[in-house]
Design a protein around this nucleic acid. Sequence first.
DNA 1: AAATTATATATTGCGCACAATATAATTGGA
DNA 2: TCCAATTATATTGTGCGCAATATATAATTT
Lengths: 156, 156
Amino acid sequence: MNDGVAAAQDPRDPLLLDRQVCFPLYAATNLLSRLYGPVLRELGLTYPQYLVMLVLWEKEPQTVGSLGARLYLDSGTLTPLLKRMEAAGLVRRTRDPEDERRVVIELTESGKILRNQAVYVPETLARGRKSEGIDELRDSVRRLVELLAEQTGSKR
Amino acid sequence: MNDGVAAAQDPRDPLLLDRQVCFPLYAATNLLSRLYGPVLRELGLTYPQYLVMLVLWEKEPQTVGSLGARLYLDSGTLTPLLKRMEAAGLVRRTRDPEDERRVVIELTESGKILRNQAVYVPETLARGRKSEGIDELRDSVRRLVELLAEQTGSKR
DNA sequence: AAATTATATATTGCGCACAATATAATTGGA
DNA sequence: TCCAATTATATTGTGCGCAATATATAATTT
């Protein structure tokens, strides 16, 4: 019986892929990153680097820690990423003289100027796509993020 | 003027991090993967490997291509991942004699048995968390995924 | 002030993701 | 039948993302 099929297809089976919340989030993130990729490449940015730039364009300077708190990332991810951005001439990394443990990240002139090209990224990606209900979706996911962040004690 | 601040804080600024849809998705995916990590490690699985197992537990055998179509991943990601799962004794990889281009993935006995432990994963992760509105969120993100998948012509 | 503890970032090692490319098998004409 | 185009997977190289650990500085305690 049930030849070649590993499991029953009870729609209440907790392991059905289509019942998981995590999977569509995972798939959407991958698809979005794939969509952003070619557009951002023209600016010399990867997708996570673009997020770092968004934070810095809002407020500058920042420490590695404050960037990580905003993006839910830790130094294991940010340190090498920021070094690549420094090598690309987008940011400067300097030890804070007030507290030598901290590393201060600030934009270089070309990092600031890049913003002028970046302003067209959102509309380039939105073009031709219906944005119906997109704000509600964003806010729902944001509530989930805050829930997850507080529960994982995420001060990464 | 505007000393040390890179950009104005106009709430309609298209580059504000909090206006992006992509960022909460990105953050939620990272936080969730971090949450799943320790639980799945007891089963000897990573998070993407868990997703592959969910697909195989539903239907087996599958080809690399059919797994990729379901998970929106391509062979560049799946081939090394499946080789690690083969090395861990969870799956078998064999060329399809009908079409030697295809690689057929099927569960080993221990791959099938692992399901008995995996059934507790969803409830372990849900425990103590309020699941209010979670189904609607999942369906919203799923609609977004389908939109993105068709538009990126994603037959990866 | 010395010892302890806490904090901030860096390093290491591993496993994804993905673009670009390569290889091999199959299909579909001319 | 040959051959060009298509399809399926593999390979290579780069950049995350993260756990675990290391290092150095600062704050706190004694």
